[in-house]
Structures are given as C-alpha cells and as structure tokens.
C-alpha cells in the first residue's frame, strides 16, 4: 500500500467513522508544526503514606516528533522512558507541562475527548504475551478499535483482513486465539491493532525486546517498511542501542527523568556528548570478539577518565 493510498484509506476510514470522529480532527492545522510536541513535561506518581512526597518520574521533558519520523528514546530501567510514552497515550498523569498533537493539547483532557483524539496515537507494547486478550480471537482483537468507532461490521472485517496482510500474517489467522502464535507473530498482531485506526503516531514501547534475535530483525524491518509506506511516525522506546541505531532517525537519551542528549542518530551514536550517553554507548558488547576487546579497553579508559573528572558518583550509579 502506498503512502497516498494509506492516507486515502485513512480519510475514507474517517468518513466511515462518521461525524463523531470528525470532531476529532477539530484542531488548527499548522503544517509546519511538528506532529507531536512535548514541552517541560512533569509527571508525578503519588506514593503511599500520609503526606508522602510524590515520586517525580519525569522532570521537565521536552521532545518533538515530525510526521513520518521515528524518534528513538533510549534509557535504562527507571529512567522514565516508558512513563513518557504512557503520558502521551494518556495512561500516565501529566502534572505540569504540555503535550500537543498537531497543535492540540492532549496532556490533560477528559476521557471522552481523549477517545476522539486518541485514534491518532496508538501503541505497541513490549510484552506480546500480555498485550493481547487471551480469550479473544485475532479478528475480535483487531476489529475492536474499529467497532468501538461504529465502523460497520462488514467493513471492519475487510479492514482486518487487510491489516493482517500488511503485517504479513495469513488471512486465516483471524479465527485463531493469541496463544496459537509465537512471540514474533503476536507482536505482528499488536502492530496490526495499532495500525487499525490509521494513526499518525505509534508509541512503540520496547516492541522487540521480548523477541528472539532473528524474529527481532524481521519485526524491526516490518516497522521500517510500514513507516516508509504509510508515513506514520514512531516514538520508539528501547534500551537496546543496536535497535535504536537501526530504526530511528533521531535519538533522545533519557536519564533519571530527563533527556540528557538528543540529535540525529548518527551524531548521537558516533559522537555522544553527555557522560552518561558515552558510558551507555560503551557498555553494549559488540558481536565481534576482536572489536569487543577494543571496546572493553575504550570503556575502561572512559570510566577512568570520567572518574577523574569527578563523575565518579555517576559512573557507579548501578
């Protein structure tokens, strides 16, 4: 499917989705503005206990994504990268700051407004085993977002067949249950569900981390291929540097609830500026014994240099 036909389908889909959805597009269109604009986003999670100080997961994060672009978000567990994705999806609270989609604020909106706007932002989660309801057939899973928007049944069925084709699964997968599929196939189903509403942005939260090496490469290629064909934008959250290099146009590095470095992938991965990014880059082992030996030496030198420069507390944060 070409980009133009994706958009045609997108619009036809909107037509079919009816008046209710038209209100979803009710926003000022500034073609030069980025698709997604996050400004000084702060997210607090309340902690248990009387007058406990809340936990601040995001400490003023700013990020933007243009239509059709893939922005990689790298960081370790607890860095806040997943929270950032969930905030964009409306699944995590926005304490301060703003999240704008095509100029419209989507940070602190009511559930009803979110349902209208939300179709433009979809998600692929990390765990393909718990992100699909085990009791529903693939058809029911894929049709759910369509039926909830009052797309006629016959049309939804057609769209589901088409979606399966897009993610390279056989059409008879429709009648089966998630447990009959492997991890990689399930992740394809999750991608198909994310594409069902022809969104403009998909939040990909570690979508290949749970997959085997060879499956991972194929699913990554599918992500890229779909992007090139349809022009959908990705916020690609991952801890795997090889994955992020492979799939993203730009990279943002998160550390302790803040973005410490961002830029074009080549620049950030070849010439990292922030000490944390440098350490992160050096830490991943290279799949080549000779190169890894060199990398190990470089890492040792880097750590020594950073320790000398007074970064000792950071270097041994683990």
């Amino acid at each position: 499917m070409s980009r133009a036909s994706y958009e045609a389908g997108h619009l036809a889909g909107r037509d079919a989705l009816g008046q209710e959805l038209l209100q979803g597009t009710d926003r000022p269109l500034d073609p030069n503005a980025p698709l997604l604009e996050i400004n000084d986003l702060v997210t607090d999670f309340p902690l248990k206990g009387f007058r406990a100080k809340p936990f601040r997961a995001l400490k003023g994060v700013s990020l933007d994504i243009r239509a059709g672009e893939c922005v990689g978000l790298v960081g370790e567990s607890g860095s806040g990268k997943t929270t950032l994705g969930r905030a964009v999806l409306g699944l995590a609270p926005v304490t301060a700051g703003s999240i704008r989609l095509k100029g419209q604020e989507i940070g602190n909106i009511s559930a009803a407004v979110r349902r209208r706007v939300g179709r433009d932002v979809q998600v692929v989660f990390q765990d393909p085993y718990t992100s699909l309801n085990p009791a529903m057939t693939i058809e029911a899973i894929l049709a759910e977002p369509l039926l909830t928007r009052k797309v006629p049944k016959a049309e939804a069925r057609e769209r589901v067949a088409h979606l399966l084709e897009e993610v390279r699964l056989p059409a008879d997968a429709m009648h089966r249950l998630p447990k009959e599929f492997s991890g990689g196939q399930r992740q394809r189903i999750a991608i198909a569900r994310a594409l069902a509403l022809s969104p403009e942005l998909i939040i990909c939260d570690e979508p290949v981390s749970a997959l085997d090496l060879s499956t991972q490469a194929r699913v990554l290629d599918l992500f890229k291929e779909i992007q090139e064909r349809t022009g959908v934008a990705y916020l690609f959250i991952t801890h795997d540097l090889d994955v992020v290099r492979h799939v993203s146009h730009r990279v943002a590095v998160m550390w302790k609830g803040e973005i410490v470095e961002s830029g074009d992938t080549a620049q950030v991965t070849r010439d990292p500026q922030h000490p944390y990014t440098q350490r992160l880059w050096m830490a991943a082992p290279v799949a080549d014994p000779a190169k890894q030996k060199i990398r190990r030496e470089e890492r040792r030198e880097l750590l020594a240099a950073q320790a000398e420069a007074g970064e000792a507390t950071l270097a041994f944060a683990a």
Partner: peptide, 12 residues
C-alpha cells in the same frame, strides 16, 4: 497490557 491497549484504542 491488553486493557491499556483497549483504552488506547478508544474503548469506554
């Protein structure tokens, strides 16, 4: 996660 996914798909 599938409940989160349903929420994102716009289910009430």
């Amino acid at each position: 996660l599938y409940v989160d996914a349903a929420r994102v798909s716009g289910l009430t």
